[in-house]
């Protein structure tokens, strides 16, 4: 569950990236966040993951008020989120299994829990046969599946993906998007940032469009009706 109320974010250098956004995302929703380059999408994502704190307004993520909670509580807020990036962000020297297991280890899971959970999630993303490969031995689409498995491994309430298909060809992009849709169907709230109009319009999902730090449209029609570039 996400609740933003009159959120603004001004960077230290004075750049106003978010100029007053209010929106609500319910548990179980699938939402596309679209908008031109520099419109403030990544800034908004960073506000949700508490990488940035709002300049004014309130950011509520799974009942954590990021601007109000203690610093020491932020890790626990992040455990309710799974985050996926365009550049996968895998650890090059760890194999697929360990990349995914890593996310469990660092929050203190036992080896027993890891051994039973990781294969299940790898199967969910279709990588059950590649668990011993290193990231460099995988295609871009496969690497992104590893990142998705890692985002899922601690059973977050919500997954946030910042241009997850930005580095993939259209066919791979569609596969990834369908995988995210399937994960959403299993109960995880999904927020996907993307530039790709054609991709968005293949799904019938809620689409929030922002421009210049403001929400300019928010509808369930699943139509990406905003012109980019």
């Amino acid at each position: 569950m996400i609740d933003l109320r009159n959120v603004t974010k001004t960077y230290d250098n004075g750049a106003k990236a978010v100029k007053g956004i209010s929106l609500h995302i319910e548990d179980g929703e699938f939402v596309f966040l679209v908008g031109p380059s520099g419109s403030g999408k990544s800034t908004l994502i960073k506000l949700l993951t508490a990488e940035l704190l709002p300049t004014t307004g309130m950011v509520l993520v799974n009942n954590f008020n990021t601007g109000k909670i203690k610093r020491s509580q932020i890790p626990y807020m992040r455990r309710t989120l799974g985050v996926i990036f365009q550049d996968f962000r895998l650890i090059e020297k760890k194999n697929v299994f360990d990349n995914v297991a890593f996310a469990m280890r660092v929050i203190g899971a036992s080896e027993k829990e890891i051994k039973s959970r990781v294969p299940y999630v790898l199967e969910l993303v279709g990588l059950e046969n590649k668990s011993h490969r290193l990231p460099e031995e995988l295609s871009g689409g496969e690497q992104q599946r590893v990142a998705i498995a890692r985002a899922l491994i601690n059973n977050p309430q919500m997954i946030i993906a910042d241009e997850p298909t930005g580095n993939l060809d259209p066919a791979r992009s569609l596969e990834i998007m369908m995988l995210l849709e399937r994960i959403n169907a299993l109960g995880t709230t999904m927020m996907v940032v993307t530039h790709e109009k054609a991709l968005v319009n293949r799904f019938s999902k809620r689409v929030i469009a922002i421009d210049d730090g403001l929400v300019i449209s928010d509808g369930m029609d699943g139509y990406y009706n905003y012109e980019t570039e």
């Binding site: 610093r71 626990y76 650890i91 660092v106 601690n154």
Partner: peptide, 17 residues
């Protein structure tokens, strides 16, 4: 640093890092 960034992202506590 990349590993640390990932640790933070998945919710490792500062003490653990």
């Amino acid at each position: 640093r990349e590993e640390i960034a990932i640790m933070r992202m998945v919710g490792a506590t500062n003490r653990f890092i």
